[in-house]
Design a protein around this nucleic acid. Structure first.
Lengths: 347, 347
DNA sequence: TTGTATGCGTTATCAC
DNA sequence: GTGATAACGCATACAA
């Protein structure tokens, strides 16, 4: 609105517009006296450069776009965003966050909006493997670099940063087996697909030791509704009890599942870890505060976000210096860490 | 980069630039045939309007800036941001999030950056009461509307959305007294100041019933370090035990404090709620999964974010239609809700 | 119904 | 050391 421009300064100080511009940008061409006059005047009148105009002129905005699926308030995503924010702050980039709400069209619209805004790069956690892969490749090749994080889509010819969930699940399962808990109830989401790396890791660990995979020990929950999760876990346990094949361990594939399981077991009067040991993927510090303290597989969420943005900026810089598209196709899988607490500690 | 512009389309189709512009904007001046030709060409060549140029021209960006303090991964803040996102998505605005990291200079820099980017409005959770109030007022009056959320600074002449923490604390304390727990340990942050509404509400509840306020029951933690919190809570409890003035209730002023308290009590072998009842401010769903389930005062974080953005857009629209600054100075306090669970339920 | 010209606030080239 | 001018991509007042 009432914004003072370099043109105003030029008029007030009887200089030309270009002199003001140069003075404000510390150009060596300008005499120290003039520069001082200009800068003092600018400060005094709270001059703020119009970055829109600058960006339009120089062709870059110093801002990057981030598209996440949804569930903004999940701890996991918040940690990723935290890492992204940290890296962008350090690098002097602004970030614009958009949500795809697990919808392919919304994802495409977000992509378009970001390109329209002229972001220098895009960080994307794709809706699905099939989502807009050709379109994303198109943007990556014709507009600005795209880096994928969390969910990895092999069709995309770009840098990808994910988590080695396979190994995380494998190690957690092995841990359960080590403490001699082999009747493991695996509780997961119903939309993950059998190709999900957590399921694969779990199965592999059993296979390694020739432990048969019991389909009755696989529980699939609708993750969109907490009450449904509770109901599903609860009824599964009761059913197994009736059939006299009670598990002696639970492996939760998501933080919600794992947390809720603990609460439900307490309600059912089942002792943890004596009757049932519990471990699961979870990224919250609260695991410690639970009673019993919960053993978890932790994903390096913040690191992932941080690294993803770093990698994106590398690509941006690379293109800026070489002036051409770079054909990097790197895939980085960060390792999880396992934290053994009371819920899987047998005394 | 390889971006097609309306100029390119004009050249290719042998029309003037303004014809293309009008056709793309569905102007009634353009014949349906021409429009179709233009739009088809645009789609085919994946034309994306340059919003920088458009914004520069029309003087608005359709984006709003959000400045939060820090602790991006706190559940509370994430929920606020979730609400903001929801409202901005509905209204068709992009949001740019910045962090002040509890630093006044960073706050000012963020403010400047947002103004420079030409945001249509700013949502701010100020660093402190004294922070940049004159400067914020200046921006509000000369650049774009500013709406405050969460932390409310009375010096600022604008719309403010907060939470009635006073009443929340009052009710929680009353609840403890109702179950006959009057030796209440109040654990809070060390940087809140005595004017903090949670402290005031707590004290008021005691005063109402002529219960003396025991300074030894006030514990102040450095919230920046979890280990320090644990240490502080733990040592306070042991010290009080030694002095034979063990409290029979704990009121935690933040989610971290409350959660950690439960964990520590479990470690110390103190029974909840038999020996010590626990209630506190907390915005996580995990309260249910805790054992015992934790009684909480919940702040309507998502609603607050949602409403704040709504109000901001109201201001933006108002200015756009009336063409002048509006002198609204509204303060809205949303009510908390209290959730009684096992940790304060005496059988 | 379409075209011409101008300007939004900057930076950059080139001349003085 | 400083200034005139063009250009970034778009919207729009006005002319035709």
């Amino acid at each position: 609105m009432a914004n003072i421009t370099i043109k105003d300064i030029a008029k007030a100080l009887n200089f030309s517009v270009s002199t003001i511009s140069k003075a404000l940008n510390n150009s060596y061409e300008i005499s120290p006296e003039t520069r001082k006059i200009v800068i003092d005047y600018a400060n005094e009148h709270k001059y703020k450069p119009n970055r829109l105009a600058k960006s339009l002129k120089i062709g870059q905005t110093n801002s990057i776009g981030v598209i996440v699926s949804s569930y903004f308030s999940s701890t996991f995503l918040a940690q990723i965003l935290d890492g992204i924010h940290k890296a962008s702050f350090e690098a002097g980039y602004d970030i614009i966050i958009m949500q795809s709400f697990e919808n392919i069209d919304t994802e495409k619209a977000s992509l378009d909006a970001l390109v329209s805004k002229g972001v220098d790069g895009i960080l994307l956690s794709p809706v699905s493997e099939v989502s807009n892969s050709e379109y994303i490749n198109y943007i990556h090749e014709n507009h600005c670099p795209v880096v994928l994080f969390d969910r990895i889509n092999p069709d995309l010819k770009t840098t990808k940063i994910g988590v080695n969930e396979y190994r995380g699940a494998l190690e957690a399962t092995q841990h359960l087996i080590t403490i001699n808990r082999k009747r493991i109830l695996f509780i997961t989401g119903d939309k993950f697909g059998e190709n999900n790396q957590r399921i694969q890791g779990f199965k592999k660990a059993l296979k390694n030791l020739d432990i048969p995979i019991n389909p009755r020990y696989m529980v699939y929950c609708n993750l969109e509704n907490v009450d449904e999760i509770d109901e599903k876990i609860s009824s599964s346990l009761l059913e197994l009890k009736k059939q006299n094949i009670m598990p002696n361990a639970i492996f939760g594939a998501t933080d919600t599942i794992t947390m809720r399981s603990l609460g439900i077991l307490a309600n059912l009067g089942i002792n943890v870890p004596e009757d049932i040991a519990v471990i699961g993927f979870a990224n919250t510090d609260i695991a410690f505060s639970l009673n019993p303290a919960l053993s978890t597989i932790r994903q390096p969420a913040k690191d992932m976000g941080y690294l993803a943005l770093k990698k994106l900026i590398e690509l941006i810089d690379l293109e800026a210096t070489t002036g051409k598209k770079t054909q990097v196709e790197e895939t980085i899988l960060l390792e999880t860490s396992i934290q053994i607490r009371k819920s899987t500690t047998l005394s």
